[in-house]
Design a protein around this nucleic acid. Sequence first.
DNA 1: GTTAGCACTCCCTCTTGATGAGTGCTAAAA
DNA 2: TTTTAGCACTCATCAAGAGGGAGTGCTAAC
Lengths: 339, 339
Amino acid sequence: MLDERKRLVLRAIIDSYIETAEPVGSRTIARKHDLGVSPATIRNEMADLEETGYLQQPHVSAGRVPSDKGYRFYVDALMEPYVFPGMELQKLHEEISSVQLSPERSIHEAARLLALLTQSVSLIVAPSTDQLVFKHLQLAALEDTGILVTLVLHPGIVKNRLIRTKRDYSPEQIADLSTALNQKLKGITYRELGPTIFTEVIRDFEEIGRALVEIILQGLAEDKGEQIYASGTVNILSQPEFRDVDRAIALFEALEQKEHLLNLLGRAAKSSGVQVAIGHENVSSAMQSCSLVTCTYYVGNDVVGTIGVIGPTRMDYARVMAAVDVVSRSLSTLLTEDK
Amino acid sequence: MLDERKRLVLRAIIDSYIETAEPVGSRTIARKHDLGVSPATIRNEMADLEETGYLQQPHVSAGRVPSDKGYRFYVDALMEPYVFPGMELQKLHEEISSVQLSPERSIHEAARLLALLTQSVSLIVAPSTDQLVFKHLQLAALEDTGILVTLVLHPGIVKNRLIRTKRDYSPEQIADLSTALNQKLKGITYRELGPTIFTEVIRDFEEIGRALVEIILQGLAEDKGEQIYASGTVNILSQPEFRDVDRAIALFEALEQKEHLLNLLGRAAKSSGVQVAIGHENVSSAMQSCSLVTCTYYVGNDVVGTIGVIGPTRMDYARVMAAVDVVSRSLSTLLTEDK
DNA sequence: GTTAGCACTCCCTCTTGATGAGTGCTAAAA
DNA sequence: TTTTAGCACTCATCAAGAGGGAGTGCTAAC
C-alpha cells in the first residue's frame, strides 16, 4: 500500500522525531537521509502520508509528526530491530541474578534494570499466588495463641501469615495438621485447590476442627491478589513531553491506580512475545499519548507475570522492545532454573 | 530579643507566606492582621527583621520571605500548634489498624496516610532486624536440598530465607536444630546474638556441622539492614516551589539515595518527640530548600524506627508536626498492642 | 515525475512600554 | 522618640508588536 519511497520517508521522519522530539521538515529529511530527491519531492510524499493518516501537522508551518497509525506501521514494518550486544546481555543477566535473596527481589531488580535500560517507567506484575504451585506448607504454633503459616511456592516465593486463634491448639495437633496439609497441597496450584481436597483434609482433622483449616486457607487466599510495581517513575520527568508538570501529574496519578494498570497489562498476558499498544490503542485516557510495551515471563512453561514499559508514544520502540524482550527472558531463565 | 510587635509581624508574614507562597508586603500585613499600625511602621519592622536575619527579600521591590532562621524561630516560639480533632484522630487510627495483615503493611499504610495528611512526601524507616526481639525461629527441610528459615520478630514481623545447602541433612536433624535454635534465641535481640550463644549451639550440634548454623545466621544477617520507603512522592510536584521540573528531578533523585535518607533520618532517632530540620540545617545539598519533620516510633518502650515528612521549607509546620506526631503515636500503639 | 521558486503561515524570541506592587527615605505629626 | 504620610525609585510581570526563521503548498518549468 505504501511504495518504497514513502516507506523510506516515513521511516526517516519517525526515526528523526524519536530522536529529537521536534516536528520534522522536508529539508531535514533531504539533508540527513540521502534519498536522492529534493525537499520538494519529499514534501509531496509527506502531504500524501498525511492524507493517508500516517503523519500529522501540529500547525500549518511546522514539520510533520507521526500519528499513532504511523507509529503502528513503523513498529510492524519499518523499524530496524535493535539487538543488544552479547556483552551487555550477559552483564544484564548477571545483575538480575546477583540478587540471590529471593525471586521477589529478582523481580524487583528486573524492573529496576528495565527502567534504567529504557529510561522510562517499567511495570511488573508479580506472580499471583493463584497460579503458582505449592511446594511446601508449614504451620507452627507460637507461644501465644498465634499460628504461623508459611507457604513456599514453586519458584521459591515465600508467603507468611500470622493467624490469631481464639481456641487453643496443642503444638502437636498443629504439627500433625501441618504435615497433612503439606502432603495434600504439594504440587497443586492454588487455583486447583478444589472442594475435594479441602473436605478431605477437614475430614481427617475433624478433631482440630474445620474452623482452623478454614482460617488458614482463607488467610492464604487473602494476599493471592496480583501485585504490580512501577519503577523509574522519575524518568518520565526527563521526557520533553512531560516538561509540563500537570501532564506529568496526570500520568503519575494514572500509575498509582494499580487496578487500572493490572487491567492494562492483563491484556498482554494472553498473547506471547513482545506486545505494543500505541497511544489511543490504550483505553486509559491519561495514557492516550503514551505507549505500552509488554511481555510475559515464565516459570518453566507457565506464564506467571508480565513486565512492561510505559513511555511517550515517541519512544524508541526498537530499543524498548528489545529491552523488554531481553529482561523477560533473563527473568524467566532465572525463575525457572532456581526453582 | 524580639519585642512583641516584631513577633506579631514575623508570625503574620510567615503565616501568610506559608499559605500563599508569595512574598508578603507591608500592606498585606496591615490589611489582614489588625495590628493597629500603618504599613509604614510595619515596613520599618520588616527592615529590622531583615537586618537581624529573620526575613529575606527576593529582590528590592518585592515583599519579604522568611529565612531559615525565621522559620526556626517560628517553629520554636511563634506558631500556634495544630491539634487534630478527635474524630479525625480516631478515623486515622482505624485506618492504620485496618490493615491487619502484618506490621510491615501497617507501617506502609502509616506512611501512605502521612503523605495524604500532609500532601507531602513521607518517609519511613522500617524496624531493622538488628534491634528486634526474636519471637520464633524455625527451620524446615524442603524436598530438594533447600532449607527454609523462618524468623518471627517481636511485633509480628516475619522474615524468610531459603537456603540451599550442598550437604544433605535429614529432616529430623533439621527439626532438632530448629528446636534448639528456637530455644536459644527466643527473647534476645539480633544485636545481642553474641559468640557465646553461637558457640553453645554449635557445640550441641557438632554432627550437623557448624557450617549449617553459620549459613543460617549469615542468611539472617543479610537482610537485617534498615529499609526506608518514601510515599507520596507525587505530591511534591503540586508544590509551587517545584513547578520547575529540574528542581523536582533533583529532589526525586535525592529521595532515591536510600543511604543518604537513612543518614538524614538517623539523626532524629537519637532524640525523642517531633524533630524539625529546616533548610540548610539539613546537610544534603538537594534538600537545602526543604524541611524535614521526623519522629520515632516504638514497640513497647523501644525505638524501632523513624517516620518523617519532607516538604519545602515553606511547609505548614504546625499541621505537619501534628500529623507526624499523631501517626507515630498511632503506629506505636498498634505495634505495641498486637505484638 | 521532479524540482526550483515564491508567497504565505505561524511559532518563537526579543524589545518596548505600561502597570503595579512594594520598598526606603524624609519630614511632619503625635 | 515613635509613628505616619508622602514620594521617588526599583523591578517583576504582562501585553503588544516587530523581526526572523522554519516550514508549507502551489505553480510552472524541467
